[in-house]
Design a protein around this nucleic acid. Structure first.
Lengths: 341, 341
DNA sequence: TTGAAAGCGCTAACAG
DNA sequence: CTGTTAGCGCTTTCAA
């Protein structure tokens, strides 16, 4: 009779039957929502373990209305910082008892028109939106519906207050360029931007300009190039720049990946680093210290950024409150590619 | 009356009402399980879009019994290959219409006793198990219950047939060491292992030994050290080895991360690479070509491994069939750290 | 402190 | 081709 039950997983009724209580009681001891007599609870736990009973999330969600899941929206799975960031997010999400659902929005511009949205009220309690993975209109729509969201490495659409976490890009870039100018006396310092929609790149450039200004150095647009925040594009750009006769004392590559491409292009062209030209990056990727010469860069706490973003989202979900803005401090890592020894 | 409905998301009933059909009809046009008159379908789609209706996964899962979710079990979020691998997995999972749930099993040995298991029949249709994230007994238990699983970079517990995908570690390592011996004439070649439970390390060592044997070179246990498959441990080990007076023509570091640590330790000790001693790695991490000298290594297709593992799992879930074993070819990447120019 | 019962939103027979 | 209806497994009033 109950034979076909054998195949499927035990349900709350099986536990209730075995423990000799009602299913509501089982539910209560599992969720500890309401006090239950300790000996009753005992029996229930025993039944649960004996049956190896595991509540079905789907049923809990349907009956409850919370999904206990946090969504992470990404433009792609790539970058030297990615592993660290995800580690931070996963840890915080898990620690708070949530599950993590990841979605890669291949084509952002068309994505906002897409329907249905892959991550939303139907399958998550809130989402972390990494820069470049969702456009302003969708973010605004979610905000309007009061759907919990936290922005990672981007600021909210104009006029909206949405919690976001980012690095102190400007201050970091500034201290880096300060070092180049003050310690090494470089005057012609080039900057390589990342993708135009990348806010990190924007703020780093501002820091670069601020440092120049502080030291009464002119801002020369001809010294601003495109490195794309990756090896290949940075490499290609520097090759071209060199052919065009670039004259510079130092190159601030925008990030470490670009820096490695820059260094290779420079070396291929017979330039010595840092004697002929210095190179610095941003991020402090794991391999930065293994480049030759070891890369002077700005250490950016990616894991912590991920951790805090997730934590903020949990706060937002559970209390409706979160810090509107978290700016994580960065630190100058002086190695040898700047000219230090 | 229906005002409080306004707050919550539309349900299938709302769509049915607006389109003037029953909920089953709506379900049918959504899932296209049964033919529906095209004009009826038309009206339903219109209602769906007008309401911006999105089916609740929880309800679908509960009623249907498939979760449409694939689980990924990891020992940690780290490693140079991780980003690529995840990219492959995510792509395949998504392409097949599944969601991806990630769980990091912090402490494997105690994890199998943990209860409930974080990923299982209750929340996924099948799981990808990365080496080191679940022990044999749990794998055997899942297998016994016919729960779909695919192993990544590890083989099944003895006697069980469970689909797995891995690199041709042995052949790759062998061709690498062949190159060292045949092209460069090295005779004293050291090998650095990874964690003892890491199968990649095991097979690479076998390839190393096979090459030695083929060339009538003795296998010298004193030339086998521990590099842990990471920068730090490899660096520390080489420092110690050097102090102990290690004599070697070349070091096969086990993987690229370890290789970077080895190179740094060697350089700090005043050794020239490859003149005094050659260094080779395995994986072809993104930064391998940016090391100095550029690292000769074995290219391992991590993204493809992830992709195929996910694909196999989907096959297993949908058809009950999958290839029992997939070994991905690797390729020798000759750069300069081996002595080539 | 406990049980009974009404849904949560959807799928899948079963009738028509 | 379409509507009715019975659950899926759980949470949560409402009574007792």
């Amino acid at each position: 009779m109950a034979d076909n039950k054998t195949i499927s997983q035990p349900t709350i009724s099986d536990v209730a039957a075995l423990a000799g209580v009602s299913i509501s009681t089982v539910s209560r001891v599992i969720n500890s929502t309401v006090p239950v007599a300790s000996d009753t609870a005992q029996r229930v736990w025993q039944a649960i373990e004996q049956l190896r009973y595991v509540p079905r999330p789907a049923a809990q969600i349907l009956a409850g209305s919370k999904t206990n899941t946090i969504g992470l929206l990404l433009p792609s799975i790539s970058g030297a910082f990615f592993t660290e960031m995800l580690r931070g997010i996963e840890a915080a999400v898990r620690q708070n008892g949530f599950d993590l659902l990841i979605y890669v929005n291949q084509d952002v511009s068309s994505a906002s028109k897409r329907y249905p949205q892959p991550l939303g009220e139907h399958n998550t309690d809130g989402i972390i939106i990494f820069t470049g993975s969702l456009d302003d209109s969708e973010i605004a729509r979610l905000h309007q519906r009061d759907f919990p969201q936290v922005l990672l490495h981007r600021s909210p659409p104009a006029g909206l207050t949405i919690p976001c976490v980012a690095f102190e890009n400007k201050a970091g870039a500034r201290s880096l360029v300060d070092h180049l100018i003050e310690v090494h006396g470089y005057r012609r310092i080039a900057y390589l931007t990342g993708p135009s929609e990348n806010e990190d790149s924007y703020w780093r450039k501002l820091g670069y300009q601020a440092s120049l200004k502080t030291h009464n150095l002119p801002f020369n647009p001809a010294l601003v190039g495109y490195g794309g925040f990756n090896h290949e594009e940075a490499h290609a750009f520097i090759e071209k720049w060199l052919q065009e006769g670039l004259q510079a004392d130092a190159i601030f590559a925008g990030n470490d990946e670009a820096a490695s491409g820059v260094m290779l292009a420079l070396r291929n062209a017979g330039k010595r680093i840092p004697e002929d030209i210095a190179v610095v990056g941003f991020d402090d990727a794991s391999y930065a210290r293994y480049l030759t010469p070891p890369l002077t860069t700005i250490q950016a706490p990616s894991e912590k950024a991920g951790l805090l973003a997730a934590q903020q989202l949990v706060n937002l979900i559970q209390t409706g409150q979160a810090q509107p803005f978290i700016l994580l401090p960065t630190e100058l890592k002086v190695r040898q590619s700047c000219g230090c020894s």
